[in-house]
Every structure is written in C-alpha cells, then in structure tokens.
Design a protein around this nucleic acid. Structure first.
Lengths: 149, 149
DNA sequence: TTCATTGTTGATTGATTCTATCGGGATTGG
DNA sequence: CCAATCCCGATAGAATCAATCAACAATGAA
C-alpha cells in the first residue's frame, strides 16, 4: 500500500516552498529542476494543489506559485487527499459511502469494516496533525564538522 | 490509498475460518459461496496464505483449509503483507530498501522519508497488534429483541 | 505593441497493476 | 477407478499510474 508518485511529488514541492520565507514565489521549472520532478507532471500537481486552496499562482514574467499558508499550517492530509483522495483501507468502512451500506451487505456494517475504520481514523488523524513544517524539522541538520575527530 | 481486493478477501476468508472451532476444515467452494468471493480468485489467495504459514491444507475428498493458529494469534499484518507486501507510504522510508540510500539522493535520508517512516511504523504496529479475533469481536452482536418496545 | 515568460487545460500514450478467469494437473479418500 | 479437492501457470480485460504533448491564456517588460 503506497502513496502515488503524484502525492509524493506534491509533498516534496510543498516542502521545498515551505523552507523559504513566506511570500517567496517559485516557478514550476525551478521546482522541477531542484526536486527532480518531471516538469509537465509537476504542472498537473501544482494545479491541483492550487485548486485545493494550498497554493496561489501568478502568471507571466516573474510569476509562479506561492504557499497560501505557512508550513506549520499545512497538514499533509490536505496535500495527500487533494491528489490521491482519502485514505480508506477497504471500500467498506463506516461513513465512507454516505447513505450506502457496507458492500458486504451486512446491515450496520461488518466487523472488518468497523475495524478498518479504526485504522483509517488513526491514519487520518496523523495526517491531519503532521504538517509540512514537521517534515522540514526532520531534515538533516547542517553537518557539525567540529565534532568529528 | 487502498488495500487490494485480494487482501480484503483474504481477511474475510480468515475471519470466516476464525469464527469456527479450531480444527474446522473449509473447502474453497464453501468459503467462496459464503463470503461472496470469486472462486478461482480465492484459490490464489488461500494458496498464498498457506505458503505464508497461516493456513494448512488437505487435498482430496473431505479436504480443505484449516487455520494454523487461533484467531487471536493471527495479526492482520501477516495476512496483508503476504498478499500486498509491506505498507510503505513512499519508496523512500528508512530501512525499506536495505543497503540503498533514499531515492531522493540525500545521504542519511530526507525529511519526508523520516516522516513517512513514522507513519509506516504506526500502521505496521497497529496491523501487528490487531488480529482476526479483533475483527470477529466487532461483528454485530445477535439482536436483543426483548429490549425493543 | 510586441514578445518572452509563465501558468492552464485537455488529450494521449505506454507501462504496470488489478481483478479476475481458464484449463488443466496432482493428491486423496471412498 | 473416480469424484472431490487443492495446486499451478497462463491469459485477458479493465483500470490506474506516470508521464508527455500540444495548444491556449495571462502577465509584465522592452
């Protein structure tokens, strides 16, 4: 069970933007080059993130993308869900198909559906609480050469 | 991000077997019919679960599959990993590619990889601690008609 | 105005994976 | 022997994924 490449690229792009000062503008080209993401692929991704309200854009010379919110206010869940849709281990968890019963046909939901909804909730909570800033904070700190022998 | 249908069917089959007394034998046909799983598809799945050490089988008349261990000793992780492989949000988490560095090329791993390995560990822990018996315990209890007006 | 720069959009392709299905083969008990 | 049952490999159709292509629209500078 993996995230799509799109979602990964989307997170990498957001992290790259989140590292810079608020208001910094990035062209798709620069992001693609720096993060090793196929240019035309990244185009689609940033557009989705823009439509999801995570980015704003400006066209023309000197244009590009900016973050709408600071990195510590961008949950990974918003990025991942905008691109890949919600995390949902099986198509049978409670509340995942409004108005429809579990596809197993058991009224009130089956044990598997109930159990998997626990996993879903746990993952979604983590994705909500973990932000772009969290990722940046976990990047390798600059080497402290003086502590090496 | 979803589990495969195979993994879901595998869990449903294991749950069905786990409900019965230890040592009960099930034919593929019965399981397929009761759980609404395509017969030839279930064949493949049960074979994988057998090779993973979760089931034992007996051929010929009166044969079928049995669980190797009681339901409370079968973590969902064993079922899911045998069929779908390990949960791994991106192909860049620490330790997921032995001997290889993160595909992002950053020595020591990138922040995204470190962060996603936290999610991976959380999910794998849950899958390890949650068993087939857990699912069965969450199935709808028999209706208590006497308490309805 | 003109033009290069940059984002926007839809279509398309090629590869891969998913979800099965098919056809037989091997083993066992009666 | 034979019927039931598991075992195994190949195949096929559909869906999804990853990426590319081609053309368009807006912006700001010269």
């Amino acid at each position: 069970m993996k995230l799509s490449k799109k979602a990964e690229y989307g997170m990498r792009a957001m992290v790259a933007m989140g590292r810079a000062a608020a208001g910094t503008t990035f062209s798709i080209q620069d992001l693609a080059a720096n993060e090793n993401i196929p240019l035309k692929f990244l185009e689609q991704i940033l557009l989705v993130l823009k439509n999801a309200g995570l980015l704003r854009s400006k066209r023309g010379v000197g244009g590009g993308y900016q973050m709408q919110r600071p990195a510590n206010d961008v949950p990974l869940r918003e990025i991942v869900e905008a691109i890949d849709g919600p995390f949902d281990p099986i198509g049978c968890v409670q509340g995942s198909r409004p108005g429809k019963s579990c596809e197993c046909g058991i009224a009130g939901g089956c044990g598997l559906g109930r159990t998997m909804s626990e996993l879903r909730d746990m993952v979604q909570t983590w994705l909500t609480e973990t932000t772009v800033a969290h990722i940046i904070a976990r990047e390798a700190p600059p080497q402290m050469m003086s502590f090496d022998i």
